[in-house]
Amino acid sequence: MIEKTPDLIMETRDLTIRFGGHVAVDHVNLLVEPFVLKSIIGPNGAGKTTLFNLMTGQYKPSEGRVLLKGNDITHLSAVQRTRLGMGRSFQLTNIFPVLTVLENVRVAIQSRKSIGLNFWRNYLHFPGLEEEAYSILEDVLLDKKWASPASSLTHGEQRKLEIAILLALEPEILFLDEPTAGMSQEEVPAILEILQRIKDAKDRTMLLVEHKMDMIMTLSDTIAVLQDGKLIAEGDPEEIRKNKAVQEAYLGGGARRG
């Protein structure tokens, strides 16, 4: 019997994974309150993406548990967790290249509404699907490109489209793994604006892994800091900025790993 912690949407208990002798995530207890934007930071190799993979089900932990709204989901697969409302974006762009931008989002909505197996009606005869897809594209500032094939978008636009596909699934928790990775400087503010909008809507919890410090400091409600797989600090941006251990980790980690 697991004792429930009230008012938490997600929680990890002593979450640990070992790859051979290397402990990538080491007894992490992460608490996620609903409707906040929580960032996970740390030097390269600290285990941020691995922690994401454990929480969303890509990896199975060696030890410890993952709880969603107090229910143990440790043994559920990634697809099952998606159905429970966990949406995950990846560091590498993952879209449907030949389909149009609108169709990328529409197919995702179709999955949420479970009408994918219908083969006798015209797909356009499901009113609202395209409109909904379009309004999500407006949210991620991609509405002008709705008719273009996804492969013709710039890298930054493809990342936006990925977020749009995620939003179409209406997840309660969004896991964003470096949404600005590989993006040019000019494209970053747009992503910032999109994330700010989702946050302002206050109907989703967001977990964010990012390297751009200024972005994290402006967006985050709370920040968790990982180093060598261990959670070394947690708090709001101001507390983290002042935290000695964090400063140490970043200076030391940066110097050690070059």
Binding site: F96, V98, L99, E103, N118, F119, W120, R121, Y123
Partner: peptide, 12 residues
């Protein structure tokens, strides 16, 4: 149909 559109997504 919706099914046909999913097939194209799978192809992609």
């Amino acid at each position: 149909s919706p099914l046909g559109r999913v097939l194209q997504a799978i192809r992609d």
